[in-house]
Write a protein that binds this DNA or RNA. Sequence first.
DNA 1: ACCTTTCGTTGGAACGTTCCAACAACTATG
DNA 2: CATAGTTGTTGGAACGTTCCAACGAAAGGT
Lengths: 340, 340
Amino acid sequence: MSVAKPSIHDVATLAEVSKSLVSLALMGSPKVGEESRTKILKAAKTLGYRRNAAARTLSAKRSKTIGVLVLDLHNPVFAEILDGVQIEMRKNGFTTMLVSGGEDPVLEQSDIDTLLQFQIEGLILISHRLATERLALIAAEVPTVVVTRSDIQLPAMDTISNDDVAGTGLAVDYLVKLGHSKIICLSGGENPTSKSRVQGYLRAMERNHLSDAAEVVVGGLSDAAGYAAATQALKMNPTALVVANDLAAMGAIAAIQEAGLVVPDDVSVIGYDGIAIGALKNVNLTTVSQPLAELGTLAATRLVERINNPKEPAKQLKVSAELLVRGTTSEPIKTTGLAN
Amino acid sequence: MSVAKPSIHDVATLAEVSKSLVSLALMGSPKVGEESRTKILKAAKTLGYRRNAAARTLSAKRSKTIGVLVLDLHNPVFAEILDGVQIEMRKNGFTTMLVSGGEDPVLEQSDIDTLLQFQIEGLILISHRLATERLALIAAEVPTVVVTRSDIQLPAMDTISNDDVAGTGLAVDYLVKLGHSKIICLSGGENPTSKSRVQGYLRAMERNHLSDAAEVVVGGLSDAAGYAAATQALKMNPTALVVANDLAAMGAIAAIQEAGLVVPDDVSVIGYDGIAIGALKNVNLTTVSQPLAELGTLAATRLVERINNPKEPAKQLKVSAELLVRGTTSEPIKTTGLAN
DNA sequence: ACCTTTCGTTGGAACGTTCCAACAACTATG
DNA sequence: CATAGTTGTTGGAACGTTCCAACGAAAGGT
């Protein structure tokens, strides 16, 4: 238990220089003489000195810190996006402060408040539920990049996303090509991303002249929600399910198997996101895959650009999603002679 | 784009009181008069005032912030532990700063440095790889709680964990009871938790007089690592696999199926952790389950206790793990007449 | 030999808060 | 009616840094 944390001042006295020079040396300024530099570094080490970020932020009027808000850490999607963000931010000398909103949307706002109190210089929002007006307010205060939301366009805010409408369309088109027509969509609930995906489903059904057969069952983004929604959907005897995300799709598959049906023979399933676990041979999930790490890297790069050059106009970047056909899709079995 | 962030001073002038009173009011002190309080709150609102955490920390000499370091956000285990931590910390008025070390153990140390620079009042380490001496150093600087590591005992540091040795023993004992003897352990690599689990395996094998049959294949904690390790292990024709964690177990199952074998008929598999996804009917993983959220809550509670009362002695808390028998384990098929 | 530049260094102000001692204006106490 | 206490409020110091203007010393140019 050290008595009191050493300050820059203590280092200065030990190294027999001024505190200003210590500060300079610690920031790696080239103006510091070789001799003093080594003396200072040695003194800092022996004292176990550590910079005080609070004082630094206060004085320098910049925190070299950005905030990240993710909706839900349980979904591996976010971890994969975060990887990209963290790597890029570290490269640029920023600290990343991560908060996860949890279930309550009110907490989400209070989390952002906390981040802003820490004087973050930029904010990355990953798959959140904030309303457009709130977003506008936030973007006016701090450079903001929104990842994973294709529904929104604000002049002061970058967005990095795939086209959820088009992506879901890919899934539906493929199923139709295989011969499916009784295709049910399991939605991800009330968040913007899920809404876009439902819209993509509806549009694609329309374009394939299947509007009458279109059916949306409200679910959620977790495996449990997918399970519940699928149980519901199965009552309508679909031959294929287009599910809000991979996690929910895995839940849906569980429900299908539990009902004594076989995937994909009786029911085909397509997820969305392309999480790593879906590639496992025993899951083998057909999915619309987004380049997740790239999403994160792009977000970070954009944010750093905006921070370093505030008049930089906001951009809307799209990454392309692609259909990854694996084992949970096949042609529907012919109408008569059902397996079960 | 506001011109400059309003400070407590601006609020004071607008509300026609002193900055000290504004500070008091914002902290919710009961000493502030009703009239002034409303005036101040109104002024703060119209100005869009927000506390500056850096200044606050610097002046008050406490940050009301704790740091959490997790090994790997990809594993849902950590999200579930984190849930518990976050909820408890919010209850106690602390902000949680989360960093994830990523692959590189050197980064892990630098992440802790960053946290300490932010003047965190406490630190929770979830499944990390730090050496005992480093831990001792850290624990001397800041109240520290280590979650998910049963191998270590330091006087100045709380640990919350299940007994990995005993837990893995549960798995082995059950397999032996089912009639297995060719049981291979897929280790999780060089981290302390994994080492304890391997030790548990070895001890249990010994206790069941199967030391000669004991075999450890080095793997890792990801699904991919489990897949690779299982591929290796299958060459030795095991009838059961005890795997380092659930994620790796899922990878192992993929490898088994890919080899044309059936789980559990040909090979039984037991994981460790009890992640939510393992309960899905199509995964249905037998596992040694720990109460994850409880682990998090306990850690947070202990940390707050230690922060509020620094002379509080450190404790070593154990939660109990239990074997969750699901669908990936069965009796071994009889020696002759293999299914495949 | 002088002036100018460069190099390394310095003290002090500033950042936005909290905390403390002090105070005025009341209210209660004997 | 004086004294003591209470309530609400205040200015100033402090927290540990960064930044700036200014400095002496050494080096370079004429």
